[in-house]
Design a protein around this nucleic acid. Structure first.
Lengths: 243, 243
DNA sequence: ACAAAAGTGTTACCGCTACACCCATGA
DNA sequence: TCATGGGTGTAGCGGTAACACTTTTGT
């Protein structure tokens, strides 16, 4: 595609679609899974909530970098775990023109970042996953896909740690599994406080720090850390992570 | 993007990238996993092997439909299982202009289709996954991603059946698991002919047909079918499929 | 009859599930 | 001291892994 200085337009002998990125940002507060949404300024869907995102620019090295850039511009989050979710390319997903979007999901510690509105005065806000507002475009569908994806992923990879501080407690970690997998109330194997730590510790890549979390009501829980190196080793051998 | 009848070009005030689709087509012959490649006609990488694919057109309803259309035009395969793999958007993956590709993987019965060359006289050919030629663009990377994906997927979903005829034998199914997961020679749990059928049959969605496969040397193996309905039911309950 | 592949049953062990009581902390 | 949540051990069961011999079929 080339820029024509006379018409002030980009042109090409071939048709090109518009490409955007959208990010499904999950934030965990120790109890509940939350989602970061942005209130739309302009039409269409003005005033409605939507996923943070925007157009891919020729200067973006990759789509993931574009998604990260947009997210950073709009919300302040930084240095986070991101993974591609897939593309959404339905013919009429945007009424203005043909737009395909590359969706990503991100996992963050919810209260690590002060969320600002975007530069264009759009508001960013956390919503509990279980209680989302009505969403613009096909964003609800993208979110559903993201939820399904992290549900699958958590069986095989320790992605839960991205939702927690470096030092975390066993109940927090367990709450992540419960929040993501959402097992029935009477499901003991995931909700039981005795089995969960046993299973996690046996995997061999969670270490006790020897410290305890203070300043909270009731008994102070132990703090653990994720041992990246031990995980890499055990992954080589071939290990599983299921519930 | 609008078409300008005077300049004969598409134009837009905003930059748009070119978008292609590429398909990683796996074909199973009962023994080995194979990959369908196409020999490139023009530059760049003329004469080299590449994944089947091409540009997204404004008439394609979705990217998946575009990938399917291209595949059908170039190779004859039809009515196949396809799933999105992800996008590849590196700044310099195509030297001509900025091209992002949406990659898919497909699973087919290798000898069910007679592979033709494309309309533009390009040749299509099956290669064993274990012995691929040098590939154009970043296609080797896309293939590696696809292999990793099906390795993950086969633990959770019965995708193996898409690689087999409606009626298949236990050793064929087992060979798929071995070909995809590639366990060490001394790994008994996957390679043992006694444990494998037990595990598969216990899952409850493989039925005996009562028939046997004839016309092959040595003892004739039993034929089984995949019971879609039984699978759908057991999935609701929540079942696993691991090795 | 021989060679090659397919079919089949049993046992031991390990890991998961289920279950209840005591401890720490702040109010 | 009371309320709340955190921490811990064990026993039974089920399922997986490991193992060898017989049957079928074509040559």
């Amino acid at each position: 595609m080339k820029y024509n200085n006379e018409t002030k337009k980009w042109e090409s002998p071939y048709w090109h679609p518009a490409v955007t990125t959208d990010s499904v940002v999950f934030g965990f507060d120790g109890e509940e899974l939350n989602l970061l949404l942005i209130q739309r300024g302009g039409e269409p869907y003005a005033g409605m909530w939507a996923l943070p995102g925007g157009f891919l620019l020729p200067t973006d090295k990759t789509a993931e970098e574009a998604a990260y850039r947009e997210l950073h511009e709009e919300t302040n989050v930084e240095g986070i775990y991101m993974e591609e979710l897939g593309t959404f390319s339905d013919l009429n997903r945007d009424s203005r023109e043909r737009v395909i979007t590359i969706a990503f999901f991100a996992l963050v510690v919810k209260d690590k970042y002060v969320i600002k509105g975007g530069d264009d005065a759009r508001m960013a806000k956390w919503f509990p996953v279980k209680n989302l507002p009505e969403l613009a475009f096909d964003h609800q569908q993208i979110i559903d896909t993201a939820l399904e994806r992290i549900r699958q992923r958590i069986h095989f990879e320790p992605i839960g740690f991205h939702l927690l501080d470096k030092e975390f407690t066993m109940p927090q970690l367990q709450n992540i599994y419960i929040a993501i997998l959402n097992p029935p109330e009477d499901d003991i194997k995931l909700r039981d406080r005795r089995n969960f730590p046993k299973k996690m510790l046996k995997l061999g890549y969670i270490k006790e720090t020897g410290k305890k979390m203070t300043g909270n009501p009731y008994r102070s829980p132990k703090l653990y850390t994720f041992d990246e190196e031990a995980y890499t080793n055990s992954k080589k051998i071939g290990m599983r992570l299921e519930f």
